[in-house]
Design a protein around this nucleic acid. Sequence first.
DNA 1: GTGGTCTAGACCACA
DNA 2: GTGGTCTAGACCACG
Lengths: 126, 126, 126, 126
Amino acid sequence: MLNIDPRSSKPIYEQIVDEIKANIVKGILKPGEKLPSVRELSKIITVNPNTVSKAYSELERQKVIDTVSGRGTFVSANYKPRDDDDRLNKIKSSIKDAIIEAYYIGLGKEDIIHIVDEAYKAMKGE
Amino acid sequence: MLNIDPRSSKPIYEQIVDEIKANIVKGILKPGEKLPSVRELSKIITVNPNTVSKAYSELERQKVIDTVSGRGTFVSANYKPRDDDDRLNKIKSSIKDAIIEAYYIGLGKEDIIHIVDEAYKAMKGE
Amino acid sequence: MLNIDPRSSKPIYEQIVDEIKANIVKGILKPGEKLPSVRELSKIITVNPNTVSKAYSELERQKVIDTVSGRGTFVSANYKPRDDDDRLNKIKSSIKDAIIEAYYIGLGKEDIIHIVDEAYKAMKGE
Amino acid sequence: MLNIDPRSSKPIYEQIVDEIKANIVKGILKPGEKLPSVRELSKIITVNPNTVSKAYSELERQKVIDTVSGRGTFVSANYKPRDDDDRLNKIKSSIKDAIIEAYYIGLGKEDIIHIVDEAYKAMKGE
DNA sequence: GTGGTCTAGACCACA
DNA sequence: GTGGTCTAGACCACG
């Protein structure tokens, strides 16, 4: 379910955060749905429980999931997107970086648009 | 000239690498042009010379600049983009992450395309 | 295990890189095997940790080893040779230089072939 | 005549030394033949005279050329190859390194032999 | 515990 | 003057 690469330079806990958010966006995880417990998930993806715990804390901080003590963790039912300049700037900055990097392997604007297209298709298709 | 934020989580040497590549793409730095020496740049952006050196080494490895021993470093005159699956995958992955993140602040595909547009305009405009 | 000569003109970090690659080729280090940690190796060969770190970074860049954050570094399990014109040219050039140099101590083609033979035997023999 | 690449990581003076030795081996420069003066050569290959001077000193040290004060420098007439363990070991070591490196771009023994062949042909052909 | 980054300061070869 | 290497010692994130 979660695609984790322990050899990546991206920290594992961050990969978990991103994968869960991706699954929610894709509709694989639905609002209100229960997530596996820290222990369960750590076994499934063979990762240190502390790492999963850190990922869940981060997701909770971002209000993507809710933890009900003694009951478990759930995908937030009432997530409301709101303006967040910090995050918007990070997104812009990472897209800018990607564009520069693309230039250096010979890709132009059309290629970037195409990659964006593909990414959206993958989100709906899966 | 270079916009360095020492508090960013992105390593300083990487910021230097990215900024220089951005300046080349924008045409602010031209092929064959001499870059500031390691010691000069380290003074300008108040960073340790080793950090600048690390950035320059990385740029040299990527064939973005040439270092001529004893003479200095220069923007590569004959940069040829090559296929590089690893870098392409990194670009795709970072765009995918940006799209997910965008969803969480309420942005959709059109907004992403708009951001890409803006980024390209900024590159040519500056 | 690693044969390092601090008085050599070849940089120490490069010696470490070459020795480790040689040990992998010889089969002394096997795919997936854990390498000594940066601090360990630095003590073993009495060299500054930064120097070992630089060597490991270079090996990682060449995809010879994988570093798993917080866990250590490992011999790459799935190394796939790829075409690399730059490296091929370096090899050709260093062989050409060796041949010229050999001429000056009275060695001809047969002697070079013999040296190549010996080198291959040493690789398998050890 | 001399093929110098100022962007190479190999020092320029060393490139000059190697190129001159290569030309002697190839027969382009014959024993007893006069070499260009330091000033002349430095103009021809657009290099600092000090650099050429350093190259000539090194060649003289290796008894490849002779300097007759006031008359110029000449290719040694009576070069006698002799055993030189130091240089032999360097040659062996650099061939060993080349073989390891070759392994990592997927080349085997036959390929190396082929490269040696080519190098010898190039020496006679030019 | 692991590796990654950064600073400070030194020495060296090269041009 | 230039960049390259190395040491010593520090701090940090990750697991």
